[in-house]
Design a protein around this nucleic acid. Structure first.
Lengths: 161, 161
DNA sequence: TATTGTTATACTCTATAACTATA
DNA sequence: TATAGTTATAGAGTATAACAATA
């Protein structure tokens, strides 16, 4: 299944019939993107269940690992989650000892949310490996070149949102 | 922002530090995929709001257009939606005259859901153009080669799920 | 006995608005 | 006056389980 490489796609990223009629939603980039993302998320959610963790919670931990301490609201901003929704999310992670709340010294209204040693360890020992395993299952069938290309293109799209 | 092209990514699609530690969720394929898909879906949902239609409803119409008549359950299977959830979804589209229910002659427990002329017209005149416009906004900044490549890779992943 | 569509129901997720403490 | 976090609450979306008609 190699299909036409770079041909048959118009400027919109939607394949059109030669007769000028309608094209297939199922082949549009957005549709495919959504389907693949949903598949990956579902598998990841399934895999993380072993550690009683949700995809979203993993997102919080991974964000903190990448950026260092952040306020609840800032984490929510990056994840597309409302600050009211963040409260319970952080509660759960704090109860499990994976993150810690401390008052931001510069602005004492805000918390400074940080990874604990346990949180850092869980990421390194369990979560990243599990994610890698899921990635391997889902995108492992691509050539390594395609994997790198996919990653580059997605990063480009995500970066200029 | 060109970054390393095809380098720095291990077999898992996760960038690793030279020191061997795991790295950056934010650069993993699954994370990027999820973020980009969410952005596209949000924009699409926003655009479809003009026609008082949801992304999911567009999915039903687009699926029927691609495949012809299907049972409610079969549509749900393709969309990852439970049959109980399909009931209301089809109700809405039927009320708007975009699809029609008729009993499947071969199996009279099932409905045969079909696009109406109005449904077909809405797809061609409004929905597909609107989708194309959103695609253009979101992935329009990619080179046409990258767009085609992205589409090909996603189709490959979606096809072998 | 199994399956399609249906309904009632319960559960999850989320945001809105009002509150508090800080700024 | 504005903002971070909190709380209560209400809405959307979803699945589960039981039921009718049909297989």
């Amino acid at each position: 299944m190699t299909g036409p490489r770079g041909t048959g796609l118009d400027a919109m990223g939607v394949r059109r019939r030669v007769d000028g009629g309608t094209e297939l939603l199922a082949e549009s980039t957005g549709w495919l993107l959504n389907g693949v993302a949903r598949a990956v998320t579902a598998e990841l959610e399934q895999a993380l269940r072993r550690d009683d963790l949700r995809w979203r919670e993993y997102g919080v931990l991974g964000t903190l690992e990448a950026t260092g301490a952040l306020s609840q609201q800032e984490i929510g901003r990056r994840l597309g989650v409302d600050r009211s929704t963040m409260v319970h999310l952080i509660d759960v992670l704090e109860d499990r000892g994976l993150v810690a709340r401390s008052r931001d010294r510069a602005d004492r209204r805000a918390y400074s949310i940080e990874l604990t040693a346990a949180g850092r360890e869980l990421l390194a020992e369990v979560l990243h490996p599990v994610t890698a395993e899921v990635h391997e299952r889902v995108i492992g069938r691509l050539t390594s070149e395609d994997r790198a290309t996919l990653n580059r293109i997605l990063a480009e799209l995500a970066g200029t949102e």
